[in-house]
Amino acid sequence: MKFGVIVFPGSNCDHDAFYTIGNLMKKDVTFLWHKDHSLQDVDVVIVPGGFSYGDYLRAGAIARFSPIMDEVIAFAKKGGLVWGICNGFQILTEAGLLPGVLTRNANRRFICKYINLKTDNFSTRFTHSLDKNQILNVPIAHAEGNFFASDETIKRIEDNGQVVFRYCDENGNVTQEANPNGSINNIAGIVNEQGNVLGMMPHPERCADQILRNTDGAEIFNSLVMA
């Protein structure tokens, strides 16, 4: 299984993802430059966190039109695995690969802290090996993570089980207090209808190495590489 991590001008979690896959998961991984037109036969594309193109206009709006994104869109439509983290999630919504949009945090602040995540869908390639009772402790770092979509879109993705992760408290209760950014229904991560494209605001690549004393993030990577 080969991974590709896209590098946009302003990406800053590309190396974290690369390190997690290459050094911790011991899988083949390559960087994919935003101006390239080839995905180099990777099996999984990671759209990493950061501030692609300075987040000018809207987060993800300009990155979405990078040459490599045409390839990512075609790859995703054929069922290829695509995983957008933070800014990557924003880019995937702008690209139309995922529904909804990430708007300004309700409290107006950039939020950088650990949050708790409850997994709601264990049937995706990204989550199938997760422990059903485990609450994942993963950091977020964003100013625009407030998931919004029309009422009918929310109903559709909820009915389809497309909500994969929700912000919760340490006991797994999905409460208003545990919602850091104002996201509808505490939504922290969703998949597309086919389940091959995942977008999430929390950063599992930042809590995968033992040296950081928290490897909750590695479990999502493990799920992917287990196949």
């Binding site: 206009l57 709006a61 300009i62 039109f65 919504t93 702008e94 909804g100 949009v101 708007t103 919004f148």
Partner: peptide, 8 residues
Amino acid sequence: KLLANEVM
């Protein structure tokens, strides 16, 4: 196409 995101 670019300047506005009509979802929001």
